[in-house]
Amino acid sequence: MDEGLRSELSKQGIFTVKMQELLQWGYNTSRKNSIWPLQFGLACCAIEMIATSMARYDLARFGAEIFRPSPRQADLMIVAGTVTKKMAPQVVRLFNQMPEPKYVIAMGACAISGGPFKQGYNVLKGIDRFIPVDVHIPGCPPRPEALLHAFMTLQRKIDSDLLTGPNRARHLDSEICGEYPLPTFGEHDLEPAFNPEVWHPPVIVRE
Protein backbone atom coordinates (compact mmCIF):
# COMPACT_ATOMS: atom_id res chain seq x y z
CA MET A 1 0.00 0.00 0.00
CA ASP A 2 1.12 3.48 -0.78
CA GLU A 3 2.58 5.28 2.28
CA GLY A 4 0.73 8.49 1.46
CA LEU A 5 -2.62 6.72 1.27
CA ARG A 6 -1.89 4.90 4.53
CA SER A 7 -1.09 8.16 6.31
CA GLU A 8 -4.17 9.82 4.75
CA LEU A 9 -6.38 6.97 5.97
CA SER A 10 -4.88 7.07 9.46
CA LYS A 11 -5.81 10.74 9.73
CA GLN A 12 -9.39 9.64 9.20
CA GLY A 13 -9.13 7.08 11.94
CA ILE A 14 -8.63 4.08 9.65
CA PHE A 15 -5.59 2.02 10.35
CA THR A 16 -4.26 -0.31 7.73
CA VAL A 17 -1.80 -3.08 8.32
CA LYS A 18 -0.39 -5.98 6.38
CA MET A 19 -1.87 -9.33 7.32
CA GLN A 20 1.61 -10.71 7.96
CA GLU A 21 2.51 -7.86 10.28
CA LEU A 22 -0.76 -8.28 12.15
CA LEU A 23 -0.15 -11.99 12.55
CA GLN A 24 3.41 -11.41 13.67
CA TRP A 25 2.30 -8.78 16.15
CA GLY A 26 -0.42 -10.99 17.57
CA TYR A 27 1.77 -14.08 17.68
CA ASN A 28 4.75 -12.38 19.28
CA THR A 29 2.76 -10.22 21.70
CA SER A 30 0.87 -13.15 23.09
CA ARG A 31 4.06 -15.20 23.45
CA LYS A 32 6.15 -12.51 25.06
CA ASN A 33 3.54 -11.74 27.70
CA SER A 34 3.22 -15.33 28.84
CA ILE A 35 6.66 -16.81 29.27
CA TRP A 36 6.90 -19.83 31.53
CA PRO A 37 10.39 -20.17 32.95
CA LEU A 38 11.85 -23.49 33.96
CA GLN A 39 12.04 -23.85 37.71
CA PHE A 40 15.66 -24.71 38.24
CA GLY A 41 18.56 -23.01 39.95
CA LEU A 42 22.21 -23.92 40.33
CA ALA A 43 23.69 -21.57 42.93
CA CYS A 44 23.24 -18.25 44.71
CA CYS A 45 21.85 -16.53 41.59
CA ALA A 46 18.82 -18.77 42.01
CA ILE A 47 18.07 -16.96 45.28
CA GLU A 48 17.91 -13.68 43.39
CA MET A 49 15.73 -15.36 40.77
CA ILE A 50 13.37 -16.49 43.54
CA ALA A 51 13.34 -12.97 44.94
CA THR A 52 12.47 -11.66 41.48
CA SER A 53 9.51 -13.97 41.24
CA MET A 54 8.18 -13.06 44.69
CA ALA A 55 6.03 -10.16 45.84
CA ARG A 56 8.60 -7.37 46.06
CA TYR A 57 9.92 -7.52 42.49
CA ASP A 58 6.99 -9.48 41.11
CA LEU A 59 7.93 -11.07 37.82
CA ALA A 60 4.20 -11.70 37.36
CA ARG A 61 3.87 -8.14 36.10
CA PHE A 62 5.67 -9.36 32.97
CA GLY A 63 3.61 -12.50 32.61
CA ALA A 64 6.21 -14.96 33.86
CA GLU A 65 5.05 -15.96 37.30
CA ILE A 66 4.51 -19.62 36.46
CA PHE A 67 7.80 -21.42 37.03
CA ARG A 68 7.30 -24.87 35.56
CA PRO A 69 8.93 -27.81 37.30
CA SER A 70 9.11 -29.74 34.03
CA PRO A 71 11.15 -28.76 30.97
CA ARG A 72 8.33 -30.06 28.77
CA GLN A 73 6.15 -27.15 29.83
CA ALA A 74 8.73 -24.37 29.90
CA ASP A 75 9.67 -21.70 27.34
CA LEU A 76 12.56 -20.08 29.13
CA MET A 77 15.59 -21.49 30.86
CA ILE A 78 17.19 -19.11 33.35
CA VAL A 79 20.64 -20.57 33.97
CA ALA A 80 21.01 -19.10 37.46
CA GLY A 81 24.37 -19.99 38.92
CA THR A 82 27.65 -21.81 38.51
CA VAL A 83 27.57 -24.54 35.89
CA THR A 84 30.09 -27.15 36.93
CA LYS A 85 31.50 -29.45 34.29
CA LYS A 86 29.74 -32.33 35.99
CA MET A 87 26.41 -30.49 35.73
CA ALA A 88 26.83 -29.21 32.16
CA PRO A 89 25.47 -32.29 30.31
CA GLN A 90 22.39 -32.23 32.50
CA VAL A 91 21.76 -28.54 31.75
CA VAL A 92 22.08 -29.20 28.02
CA ARG A 93 19.77 -32.20 28.37
CA LEU A 94 17.14 -30.08 30.14
CA PHE A 95 17.38 -27.53 27.35
CA ASN A 96 16.96 -30.30 24.75
CA GLN A 97 13.85 -31.50 26.55
CA MET A 98 12.18 -28.10 26.30
CA PRO A 99 9.83 -27.69 23.33
CA GLU A 100 10.39 -24.91 20.83
CA PRO A 101 10.08 -21.93 20.97
CA LYS A 102 12.60 -21.77 23.79
CA TYR A 103 14.91 -19.11 25.11
CA VAL A 104 17.86 -18.96 27.49
CA ILE A 105 18.90 -16.26 29.93
CA ALA A 106 22.40 -16.80 31.36
CA MET A 107 22.22 -15.14 34.75
CA GLY A 108 25.31 -14.02 36.64
CA ALA A 109 29.05 -14.03 36.19
CA CYS A 110 29.37 -17.83 36.51
CA ALA A 111 26.75 -18.71 33.94
CA ILE A 112 28.14 -16.30 31.36
CA SER A 113 31.87 -16.90 31.85
CA GLY A 114 32.69 -19.07 34.84
CA GLY A 115 32.96 -15.98 37.04
CA PRO A 116 35.23 -16.20 40.06
CA PHE A 117 35.69 -19.94 39.41
CA LYS A 118 36.81 -19.38 35.82
CA GLN A 119 40.32 -20.72 36.36
CA GLY A 120 39.14 -23.70 38.36
CA TYR A 121 39.34 -27.24 37.10
CA ASN A 122 35.66 -27.98 37.56
CA VAL A 123 33.64 -25.01 36.29
CA LEU A 124 32.39 -24.48 32.77
CA LYS A 125 33.52 -21.14 31.35
CA GLY A 126 30.05 -20.07 30.31
CA ILE A 127 26.98 -22.08 29.37
CA ASP A 128 26.98 -20.38 25.96
CA ARG A 129 29.66 -22.88 24.97
CA PHE A 130 26.97 -25.53 24.64
CA ILE A 131 23.56 -23.89 24.20
CA PRO A 132 22.53 -20.67 22.44
CA VAL A 133 22.06 -17.91 25.01
CA ASP A 134 19.67 -15.07 24.21
CA VAL A 135 20.43 -12.67 27.06
CA HIS A 136 23.54 -12.51 29.25
CA ILE A 137 23.35 -10.79 32.65
CA PRO A 138 26.60 -9.83 34.37
CA GLY A 139 26.73 -9.46 38.15
CA CYS A 140 27.62 -11.57 41.12
CA PRO A 141 24.79 -12.14 41.75
CA PRO A 142 22.79 -9.75 39.57
CA ARG A 143 20.13 -7.80 41.43
CA PRO A 144 16.50 -8.69 40.74
CA GLU A 145 16.21 -5.47 38.73
CA ALA A 146 18.93 -6.81 36.43
CA LEU A 147 16.95 -9.99 35.88
CA LEU A 148 13.84 -7.91 35.18
CA HIS A 149 15.84 -5.89 32.67
CA ALA A 150 17.10 -9.07 31.03
CA PHE A 151 13.54 -10.27 30.92
CA MET A 152 12.36 -7.11 29.19
CA THR A 153 15.26 -7.44 26.76
CA LEU A 154 14.11 -10.97 25.99
CA GLN A 155 10.57 -9.71 25.48
CA ARG A 156 11.85 -7.18 22.94
CA LYS A 157 13.73 -9.98 21.23
CA ILE A 158 10.64 -12.17 21.08
CA ASP A 159 8.68 -9.19 19.79
CA SER A 160 11.04 -8.85 16.84
CA ASP A 161 10.95 -12.55 15.90
CA LEU A 162 10.16 -12.90 12.20
CA LEU A 163 7.60 -15.45 11.04
CA THR A 164 8.88 -15.88 7.50
CA GLY A 165 11.97 -15.24 5.48
CA PRO A 166 15.51 -16.46 5.80
CA ASN A 167 15.97 -14.77 9.19
CA ARG A 168 12.85 -16.26 10.72
CA ALA A 169 12.86 -17.45 14.31
CA ARG A 170 14.64 -20.73 15.06
CA HIS A 171 11.49 -22.62 15.98
CA LEU A 172 9.91 -21.80 12.61
CA ASP A 173 12.89 -23.11 10.68
CA SER A 174 12.29 -26.78 10.08
CA GLU A 175 15.95 -27.32 9.19
CA ILE A 176 17.13 -26.44 12.70
CA CYS A 177 16.26 -29.20 15.11
CA GLY A 178 16.72 -27.28 18.36
CA GLU A 179 18.59 -30.06 20.08
CA TYR A 180 22.20 -29.71 21.00
CA PRO A 181 24.73 -32.52 21.48
CA LEU A 182 25.56 -33.41 25.06
CA PRO A 183 29.18 -33.13 26.11
CA THR A 184 30.60 -36.34 27.53
CA PHE A 185 32.86 -36.79 30.55
CA GLY A 186 36.41 -37.19 29.30
CA GLU A 187 39.56 -38.17 31.10
CA HIS A 188 40.67 -34.59 31.71
CA ASP A 189 37.82 -32.33 30.62
CA LEU A 190 34.44 -32.34 28.94
CA GLU A 191 34.59 -33.66 25.39
CA PRO A 192 34.16 -31.56 23.37
CA ALA A 193 35.10 -28.53 25.47
CA PHE A 194 32.60 -26.45 23.49
CA ASN A 195 30.09 -26.91 20.71
CA PRO A 196 31.57 -25.24 17.62
CA GLU A 197 28.09 -24.84 16.11
CA VAL A 198 27.07 -22.61 18.99
CA TRP A 199 30.21 -20.93 20.18
CA HIS A 200 33.57 -19.87 18.84
CA PRO A 201 36.23 -18.09 20.82
CA PRO A 202 35.60 -14.43 20.04
CA VAL A 203 38.51 -12.74 18.33
CA ILE A 204 39.88 -10.01 20.54
CA VAL A 205 41.64 -7.19 18.75
CA ARG A 206 44.47 -5.96 20.94
CA GLU A 207 46.34 -2.75 20.37
Binding site: K86, Q119, Y121, F185, E187, H188, A193
Partner: peptide, 16 residues
Protein backbone atom coordinates in the same frame (compact mmCIF):
# COMPACT_ATOMS: atom_id res chain seq x y z
CA UNK B 1 33.07 -37.87 37.54
CA UNK B 2 34.02 -41.53 37.27
CA UNK B 3 36.59 -41.85 34.52
CA UNK B 4 38.32 -38.57 35.39
CA UNK B 5 42.02 -39.33 35.47
CA UNK B 6 43.64 -36.37 37.23
CA UNK B 7 43.90 -35.33 40.86
CA UNK B 8 43.17 -31.60 40.74
CA UNK B 9 44.44 -30.58 44.17
CA UNK B 10 47.90 -32.03 43.64
CA UNK B 11 50.44 -29.33 43.11
CA UNK B 12 51.61 -30.73 39.78
CA UNK B 13 48.09 -30.78 38.32
CA UNK B 14 47.84 -29.16 34.90
CA UNK B 15 44.34 -27.81 34.14
CA UNK B 16 42.91 -28.42 30.67
Amino acid sequence: WEGFKDYPMRKDYVPP
